[in-house]
């Protein structure tokens, strides 16, 4: 019979989560220690920054749950007031399927957890701590995770301001490897935004700041080049994305500075991200054809819209999981087979 036990960001503070986090190198030892418990036949440990969960197969799940609980408290010196959640049979499977589908993630629908579960299973499989039940369970979870993502909008769109900016840049330019970025102001947020674009291939970073020394430092950090603040309008013809976050109390980018460059751009669009408060860019710039201006509110509104849409998709995702659970061979009535140790892994 299947069971899972653990804790996650939803109910447990980071101070506790970081104590029970298991580094990848320690997982095989921990898995073998779990199999030493009298009622645990198979085990997989999913340990990420947001959760630490143990999936196990046992002929007596109540006893196995108590044993794993005690083992965790002993190993990590946890006080009795720290509670673990636990699920048995279908509920354990339903929980894993929800986690694999990103429904239990801090950022709803995120995909990283799917890879982390795959890694956790591969580690357990390599350590020979899985057998018939968990092999089937995890294979099923991969299938369901894919089905949920392919058939719903749970992972579509961007949920943070930075990722919305990157998504918009890709919507406008496609492959960002041919794109050049200019930073006006050397604030931390514009740096992070530019780094996100860089991570997707954007190159030719130009930094312009009232303090030229700060511009030089940031340009060096980002493998770009610094220009004096007075010169930035001359470069608008050659850049694709402008990220503005100066501390100026008034607007610094006006239509008169953008318009002269348009002809030389030969129809190439210009994407301006204004993350300064008060705003750096005159809103009239957005009225220019081929120029797309997004301020912090516009970016946040798109991120929030995506988050809401993902929330709305949860019901569809749960329905897919329910359908799979009903059809799953895992829970068809069958006598429990007590595996013989040592466990021989099924072929993946």
């Amino acid at each position: 019979m299947l069971l899972c036990l653990g804790l996650s960001y939803a109910h447990t503070p980071v101070e506790v989560r970081e104590r029970v986090a298991l580094p990848a190198k320690d997982l095989p030892t921990a898995l073998h220690a779990l199999l030493e418990l009298p009622d645990v036949d198979e085990a997989v440990i999913v340990s990420t920054c947001n959760r630490m969960e143990i999936y196990a197969a046992s002929p007596s799940p109540a006893a196995a749950t108590a044993q794993i609980d005690a083992w965790l408290r002993l190993r990590f010196s946890l006080s009795p007031d720290i509670a673990f959640f636990h699920h048995h049979r279908e509920e354990a499977a339903r929980h894993l399927f929800s986690v694999a589908s990103g429904l239990d993630s801090m950022v709803l629908g995120e995909t990283e957890i799917f890879g982390q579960i795959k890694d956790a299973y591969a580690t357990a499989h390599a350590a020979a701590t899985t057998s018939r039940h968990l092999n089937k369970l995890f294979q099923e979870s991969f299938r369901i995770g894919k089905a949920v993502r392919n058939n719903t909008q749970i992972q579509r769109g961007s949920t943070s301001v930075g990722s919305v900016a990157v998504e918009l840049a890709e919507k406008i330019f496609g492959d960002l490897r041919d794109s050049h970025v200019m930073l006006l102001g050397a604030g931390d947020m514009s740096r992070r935004c530019a780094q996100s674009l860089q991570s997707r291939g954007a190159k030719g970073i130009i930094v312009s700041n009232r303090s030229h020394q700060r511009a030089l430092e940031l340009a060096q950090e980002m493998n770009g080049r610094a220009i004096s603040f007075e010169d930035w309008p001359a470069h608008t013809a050659h850049v694709d994305v402008i990220i503005s976050s100066t501390a100026a109390p008034h607007t610094v980018i006006h239509p008169e500075q953008v318009l002269p460059s348009l002809r030389r751009r030969r129809g190439r669009p210009l994407f301006i991200i204004d993350i300064a408060v008060p705003r750096d860019v005159d809103p009239r710039v957005h009225d220019i054809e081929g120029v797309y201006l997004y301020d912090i509110d516009a970016l946040e509104a798109l991120a929030s819209e995506t988050r809401q849409r993902r929330q709305d998709e949860i019901i569809r995702c749960l329905a897919i999981i329910d359908d799979h659970l009903k059809a799953s061979p895992l829970f068809r009535p069958h006598p429990f087979h007590h595996p013989t140790r040592p466990h021989l892994p099924d072929p993946i």
Binding site: Q153, R156, G157, E167, L168, E170, K171, I172, F173, G174, R268, P269, L302, R309
Partner: peptide
């Protein structure tokens, strides 16, 4: 950005 148009090719 509507979900349908999200999948159209980049305007460039």
């Amino acid at each position: 950005i509507s979900p349908g148009l999200r999948q159209l090719p980049p305007i460039h």
